[in-house]
Design a protein around this nucleic acid. Sequence first.
DNA 1: TTCATTTGCGTACATGGTACCTGAAAGGCT
DNA 2: AGCCTTTCAGGTACCATGTACGCAAATGAA
Lengths: 252, 252
Amino acid sequence: MAGDEPVSIWLRPERQERSGPGRRPGFSREQITRTAVQIADTGGVDAATMRRIAYELGTGAMSLYRYVPRRDDLYDLMIDLAMSEIELPAGPSGDWRSDLTLLAGQIRAAGLRHPWLVALLTSRPNLGPHLLRVHEFGLSALDGLGLDIDDMTGLVGILGDYVHSAIRREISWLEEAGRSGLDPERWKRDYIGPYVRQVVESGAFPLFSRTMLDSRTAHLTPGERFGHGLDRVLDAIAALITSSRSSRSQEG
Amino acid sequence: MAGDEPVSIWLRPERQERSGPGRRPGFSREQITRTAVQIADTGGVDAATMRRIAYELGTGAMSLYRYVPRRDDLYDLMIDLAMSEIELPAGPSGDWRSDLTLLAGQIRAAGLRHPWLVALLTSRPNLGPHLLRVHEFGLSALDGLGLDIDDMTGLVGILGDYVHSAIRREISWLEEAGRSGLDPERWKRDYIGPYVRQVVESGAFPLFSRTMLDSRTAHLTPGERFGHGLDRVLDAIAALITSSRSSRSQEG
DNA sequence: TTCATTTGCGTACATGGTACCTGAAAGGCT
DNA sequence: AGCCTTTCAGGTACCATGTACGCAAATGAA
């Protein structure tokens, strides 16, 4: 009765308010999702088990299955709830660069608030309404610049790839450190340090070693590093906009 | 005795060949890793359980822990084994663009041969020797072009972000479909189709809808699509190389 | 009231990682 | 040879997890 048909969660509306017979629901999808998000925020996504969520709601694990078909669907709902927090203007400002900077910053903020978000987002296909909304804003920022829809989708994709990967890089060390129970600084020194030192001293990877030794970005805050990389990507997008436009004007 | 100290697997060498007393090992890390890879290739990474791997080797699950401290470490070993299959020339050719194209193609091939590879690779920090080797080749392709090490690392990063994300996009639909037991085409039609159709018909996301309806890349093979996106990224890298170079020559 | 319907949720099972422990090899020493 | 020390093999067991099943309680309609 639970997950018999593999139908997208977005096409499985919650039981509606109807006025027939039967017991009234005591919970809701949103309430369950919100609880799951809260647990995952503080204890990691693995802590948000069905039992734990139910316990937090003061009920039994199996009650949740009246609202959510499968655990995986709950993941989709969590993603969508987190994406719903992203605040964007109603339409693009006309300055695509600042629009995309804003967009990237909002996604990063959501990714840091919910350290599990990007990992889930990139580990499964997701087309939740709020992801679509965010994606649409990215496309709209590039609309009207003379690009065709495939170019626009491609550029938003490159931006998304960077943003997701950068956030993951920013988070994954913290996560991994947390799993060992140590604080990140100490973990980096004791766990990663010795290995990297050995790699550098082996001399086998000279350019990688230069990254480790000569980097001038090591002292930057994570946020500054994110911004640097983002600027690089936006420069690339700018270059592609002009080249794509000129090649199209040659064609037409 | 198993995973007491959280020390990188790369610093925990396998029990050496020594000539003291004691029973001889019947297996090896590599043998176990190879078996795990084989299972994951055909049945997905979730099928490669400790019990299943042990069964395939004709032994008990607990025997594996003589060779691998934790399951997570086995993931790292699997990643490294898959990366070891990537064949690269000894050094860069002097044509950075063809070098990076070769590199991307090799990674894509490995990612398709081992559908679990990219998911694991991007879900946890990994610094295995073969990943370092591949990374080093990417850096070497950009060496000597007048970029500093941070720029080089940044550009290889952008390339990697695209390659990983593109491979994941290419695979994740297949994976998701496989989980339902349906063939991908049917799954896409029955599972995704109705939802996308509803989204398009709602009119709420006009640009996303144009991607779905007007896309001129829909008929391309996955490989061609990958190549298109890659070219775009390489164009962007080319643009950044010239801009980075010119800004540096202004400074000095 | 009686009944159909829907929710709440305890119980139970399959599957996973892995700690612990006992016994079996395998070489060195006397 | 016989014994000792070291190492490997792997059974048993424990705990956590997703979730199928079934029944009791609630609720409105007839």
